[in-house]
Design a protein around this nucleic acid. Structure first.
Lengths: 263, 263
DNA sequence: TGCCGGAATTTGTTATCACAAATCACACAA
DNA sequence: TTGTGTGATTTGTGATAACAAATTCCGGCA
């Protein structure tokens, strides 16, 4: 392989493919149920099947993807029950993390959280839902980190990954929180003032609101293909779901070979 | 590769190697800090490096192994803090699982649990500590399953994997529970009678007792090679495996090539 | 028109090979 | 005796090729 002068490459290819795919998953680039093909991905990313295989295996291990027929892997299709279970665990565990993060007053941490939250709100107002979701994720990940509990943080990340494919579907949803009483603000206050109980409660409330919104949209998210598949498939699926058709998500054109699509 | 008439092989090699290695990890076949070498494992298991690489990548993703110097993987060395965190999460999450498992009376489930528990006690009395630990694991995994919460069960499994390397070190420990009031018995009663609160409490107590025992042994476990924990050698406590001269141990004899060591 | 069978293609699997980086060993010099 | 430099070996990485199983395609026959 011509490694000459390649762009920055800190890690090996397998890890890079893994990170790329993981991000794609979180960004809902793939639709639930979609099968991922080894050679297609390899071609698109400009690498051989070997590192792609490694990346897929890792994602299957983390349940970001699932083994399908002993042969191929696909994006999991989440039932409402499964979805509720994951979000209920998120509420429990992120609540616990928030509690730890707010055990004592931390003004600087609160400031960092507020900056992220402000960017999130701004993105929402500017109709950049994709950015809004990204900032929201950043907010929750920072909270997990602030807990100081490494293992807990990893578990939370894993839970996010597992409902990643549904994330993007919320892009068009205007989260309806009372403007001046967004749960994030209560969380931030908890962190600033060292009010662990408040932080925990607010975090759980935030996730619960999110849960209801997501469950409401679940059927549409599971049924809708992102980009014009065969007409039959579209007709077969549950109609309605206005946003999905327009969701510009996942137009993934194969990159011209030779231009590795890896960050 | 001569696939001819090989023993039952439901899955691909990568998965088989993964399962094998995972089991080895749970059985403390490797000592904390030990580096795993690709070609050695491949030779020992009678496969090429490719599937071994895939298996290692998966285990790293699950934190059953850790990336070492951007190049090699090793068995994680758990600090006391990390150990406490994992076990505290186990208490929380397995407690939650027990609660769910005991939401309503389930005599048959209780019976299955009791059978496992009896075997565990018997193995303990018969001085078969290895079997005792295996039955204990079975008990906890069954409880996780009985909760009906798939995602929760997976997380619990992951936590067990992460302290797997320390498991075996407890083999020689006589768990001191009041004979007739072992926490498992309370858990079983909770499941039989549908007493969720009892099941949860007892589960947490079980894990907490275990925690103390494990923490007490932690320094020795981290320092000592797996076999023959001679008091003198263990006392050294230097992680740099001073007895490296004697550590030529490598108890695992390479299988004769051609005899794949995969189940 | 509809169904069946086999050929061609797709697609996952895994061993092998070539390469590069790291490590080890040994010899030589200070 | 100790430190260093150089060559040899180890070890991870990743493309490629060979193979097998599954799927798709097509043509022929009923």
């Amino acid at each position: 392989m011509e490694t000459e002068t390649g762009p920055i490459q800190g890690e090996n290819l397998g890890a890079r493919v893994y990170n790329r795919l993981r991000r794609d998953l979180m960004r809902s680039r793939f639709r639930p149920g979609e099968k991922l093909k080894l050679r297609d991905l390899a071609l698109e990313l400009g690498v051989s099947p070997t590192p792609v295989r490694e990346a897929l295996a890792r994602l299957v291990s983390e349940h970001g993807l699932e083994q399908f027929d002993h042969r191929s892997v696909r994006v999991p299709v989440l039932t409402e029950e499964r979805c509720r279970e994951i979000l209920s665990l998120r509420a429990e565990l992120e609540g616990r993390a928030a509690e730890r993060a707010a055990e004592r007053p931390r003004p600087e941490a609160a400031e960092a959280l507020r900056a992220i939250h402000d960017r999130m709100i701004a993105a929402g107002l500017a109709r950049r839902p994709h950015d809004m979701l990204a900032e929201n994720e950043r907010f929750h990940m920072l909270m997990a980190g602030l807990s100081g509990q490494v293992v807990l943080g990893r578990i939370i990340e894993g839970l996010w990954l597992q409902c990643g494919p549904l994330q993007g579907g919320l892009a068009l949803t205007r989260m309806r929180h009372p403007r001046d009483r967004h749960p994030h603000l209560e969380i931030i206050r908890g962190v600033r003032e060292g009010d662990a109980a408040l932080a925990r409660l607010a975090m759980q409330q935030d996730i619960n609101v999110y849960t209801e919104e997501l469950i409401r949209r679940l059927p549409a998210l599971n049924a809708a293909p992102p980009a014009a598949p065969s007409a039959g498939a579209a007709a077969g699926g549950v109609p309605g779901d206005g946003p999905a058709g327009g969701s510009g998500v996942a137009p993934r054109a194969a990159l011209p070979a030779g231009m590795p699509g890896l960050a």
